[in-house]
C-alpha cells in the first residue's frame, strides 16, 4: 500500500440499536499509514463508527448495520465475509486496558496461538518483536512469566497494543487508548502511536482535543451520530468550516 492511498472507505454507514438510529449516513475515507482522529462529545457516535470498522458492534444485541465499509476493495458487511479474518487485519485497542488473566508472554502469544501463526519455537521471537514494537520490551523482558496484572496501567495498555500487533494487522483502531492513564503514560502512548503510524493505518477516538491536535493528521468531528466535518487536523483545529465544530473546539459544549 502506497502512502496517500485510501485504507478504509466508509460509505453511507447507518447503525441502529433496536429502533434508535445511532449513526446517520456517515461517509469518510481513511488514509493509509496515517493517524485519523474522531472527536466529538459523549454519545456522538464516534466509538460506534470506530467499532463498525471491525464489526465489533455485532456483539451488542439488537444492533444493525447498513451501508458499507470497504477495505481492500471489499465491503466487510457482505454476507460471505469472514469476520474472524477481518479482525486479524483490523486490530482494536480498548479504552480500559484489558489484558487477559494470564502471563505477559501468554497475553501476547494469545493471538498467535489462536491463528496458529507460529510454532511453539517461533512464539518467543514473535512475542519479543511485538513487545519491542509496542515500546514495552525493555520493561517486561524479565517479567514475561508474571501475571499481566502486575504491570502498571500504562504498561498494561501497551501490552494490549503488543497483543494486537502480534496478530499482524494493517489497521489499528484505538478507542480512547489513553483516557484512563496518567499524563506521562498518555504521552508515551502518543509517541508510540506516531511510531506505529509509519507502518499501520490508525484510527483513534479521543475526547482529548489537544491529543487529537498533537497526534493526528486528519480529524473528523461527530455530533449526534453524524459526521459534521472532516479534514486535515491543522485546518480543523484552527479554521473549522462548520460553526458546530468551532463551538466544540472552543469548548462551548461537550
Amino acid at each position: 500500500m502506497v502512502d496517500g492511498d485510501i485504507s478504509v472507505s466508509i460509505g453511507d454507514l447507518n447503525v441502529y440499536y433496536g429502533d434508535f438510529h445511532a449513526i446517520k449516513h456517515v461517509s469518510v475515507d481513511i488514509k493509509a499509514r496515517d493517524i485519523t482522529a474522531f472527536i466529538g462529545p459523549s454519545g456522538s457516535g464516534k466509538s460506534t463508527v470506530l467499532r463498525a470498522v471491525d464489526r465489533m458492534n455485532e456483539l451488542i444485541p439488537g444492533a444493525r448495520t447498513m451501508g458499507g465499509v470497504v477495505i481492500d476493495g471489499r465491503n466487510i458487511y457482505e454476507p460471505d465475509v469472514d469476520v474472524v479474518e477481518l479482525r486479524k487485519r483490523v486490530g482494536m485497542v480498548f479504552q480500559r486496558a484489558n489484558p487477559f488473566p494470564m502471563s505477559v508472554f501468554d497475553n501476547v502469544a494469545y493471538g498467535l496461538r489462536i491463528h496458529g501463526t507460529a510454532s511453539s519455537k517461533e512464539l518467543g521471537a514473535h512475542v519479543e518483536r511485538s513487545l519491542r514494537a509496542a515500546a514495552l520490551w525493555d520493561e517486561v523482558k524479565d517479567k514475561l512469566r508474571q501475571s499481566a496484572f502486575a504491570l502498571s496501567g500504562g504498561q498494561q495498555q501497551r501490552l494490549c497494543i503488543a497483543r494486537v500487533l502480534a496478530v499482524g494487522p494493517e489497521i489499528l483502531l484505538m478507542d480512547e487508548p489513553a483516557s484512563a492513564l496518567d499524563p506521562i503514560s498518555t504521552l508515551r502512548i502518543e509517541d508510540l502511536m506516531r511510531d506505529l503510524a509509519k507502518q499501520y493505518t490508525i484510527i483513534t477516538v479521543t475526547h482529548n482535543m489537544q491529543q487529537a491536535a498533537r497526534v493526528s493528521t486528519y480529524t473528523g468531528f461527530f455530533l449526534s451520530g453524524e459526521l459534521i466535518e472532516f479534514g486535515r487536523s491543522d485546518k480543523i483545529f484552527t479554521k473549522p468550516e462548520d460553526k458546530r465544530t468551532e463551538d466544540y473546539i472552543t469548548g462551548r459544549f461537550g
Binding site: D82, V84, E85, I114, H115, G116
Partner: peptide
C-alpha cells in the same frame, strides 16, 4: 487450512 479447521 488452519483457518478452516477452526471454523469447523
Amino acid at each position: 487450512m488452519a483457518g478452516d479447521r477452526r471454523k469447523i
